[in-house]
């Protein structure tokens, strides 16, 4: 009897390190800046970016890790923000399209190449593609045409802008090299 009584409060108590299910304060490092925000463990990084931080370049389209419209960089790797818990993104470098697409009003070479090749129509998938393209070029600075098609396979477009995107990524590869050599 006595041991059970002693154990009971221990069981009811949340073990150390367990957070939630209510909102908890977290700090996310987004585009190089620490952002304090209160989130429930069940909130996705995408929803926190869009609803709480007004970073709406990443879009909510399929919301199931299939379309790529929510693509962001996590420690430099491209991932689907709809399928990451915000609480789980703590301590990582999160880069959204807002973090690099324009610097001092100048478009990033990937953005400019998308514009030059009209690689967008309605534009809703485009920021996700731009993020995926940047990640791809960061690790494949000299891609072939076939590699571009493999590297951008994680994003979908409904307007059908793939022809322009292929050319844009090839052009961006050239201009990014030009930029770094200059």
């Amino acid at each position: 009897m006595a041991p059970a009584l002693l154990e009971q409060p221990a069981q009811a108590q949340t073990p150390a390190g367990v957070l939630g299910p209510g909102a908890v304060p977290v700090t996310l490092t987004i585009n190089g800046k620490p952002m304090k925000v209160s989130v429930e463990p069940r909130e996705t990084l995408l929803d926190v970016l869009r609803n709480k931080l007004d970073l709406t370049g990443a879009k909510r389209v399929c919301d199931r890790g299939t379309c790529g419209a929510c693509s962001v960089l996590v420690n430099g790797k491209v991932m689907y923000a709809c399928t990451i818990l915000a609480i789980d993104a703590q301590g990582k470098q999160i880069t959204t399209v807002e973090g690099f697409a324009l610097s001092g009003g100048r478009p990033h070479p990937v953005v400019q190449a998308f514009v030059n090749h009209d690689a967008q129509q309605c534009g809703y998938c485009t920021p996700g593609f731009v993020v995926a393209a940047k990640a791809f070029l960061d690790s494949n600075p000299n891609p072939t045409y076939e590699q571009v098609k493999d590297g951008l396979g994680g994003n979908l477009c409904r307007c059908g802008t793939y022809i322009g995107i292929r050319q844009a990524v090839l052009e961006a590869a050239k201009t990014m090299k030009g930029g770094s050599n200059a």
């Binding site: 609803n51 709406t56 879009k59 514009v115 534009g123 485009t126």
Partner: peptide
């Protein structure tokens, strides 16, 4: 010519109604 709202859209700055807060 390049589309005029191209940079705005490709950079994620364009606000669709679904982006409004």
């Amino acid at each position: 010519l390049n589309r005029l709202d191209g940079v705005e859209k490709a950079s994620g700055r364009a606000k669709y109604s679904s982006d409004l807060n």
